[in-house]
Amino acid sequence: MTPSVCLVVEGVTDLAILQRLLGELRVTVGPTHVTDGTAKLDRQLAGYNSASKYGPWLVVRDLDQDAACAPELLRGLLPEPAMHIRLRVAVRAVESWLLADGTAISRFLGVAKSRVPADPDVLVDPKGTIVSLARLSRRSEVKQMAPSPRSGRRVGPAYTDQIIHFAATGWRPVEAAKHSPSLSSTIRAIREWVVDGTPVCAEPE
């Protein structure tokens, strides 16, 4: 049995968030797969499911607008999960987990805490919310997290490194879980799954 968890995420910022979260929960992360979006992740899900016969896998995907709620998306994507795979869906995106630590993110972005939505899981587009908050900031390194009008992108050049930095150093997952049911249920699921940093999995038959 593999002693560490194989991790699948959509991008490098999500990876930083999950690494912080799993570090906090004392879960050892093994090989990580970065799929650059949901399309490839969904397509490869059967493979991850099949590989999880040999060790624990954690797959984290944004709900986005792909279903009304997380359970519905889960049923559609992976109707028959194997025993050692956990597919977690962030409502509506992993960025809402960052917004859920309102104190830390407002300090990081340099905006008033009252500007940060108190209930981030109801946001349609949490990443867009972070970018809008960044536009309000007076700090240029934060302002550059917002894209220029011609870029075609949803985020600006400073977004990736700033989010990685915040996820690794400022964000407090356990505090955030108090304001995000989606994060809180993910933490609960991982805790039930792991003991002493090693996932509890019966040997495959």
Partner: peptide
């Protein structure tokens, strides 16, 4: 941003260009 340094890079790499924060103007 830290030292105000411009970096101009040639590349064939899909991984290098996978960063969502690379704008079309770049």
């Amino acid at each position: 941003r830290k030292v105000g340094r411009q970096v101009i890079v040639s590349s064939h790499s899909a991984e290098l260009l996978s960063d969502q924060a690379i704008g079309a103007e770049e």
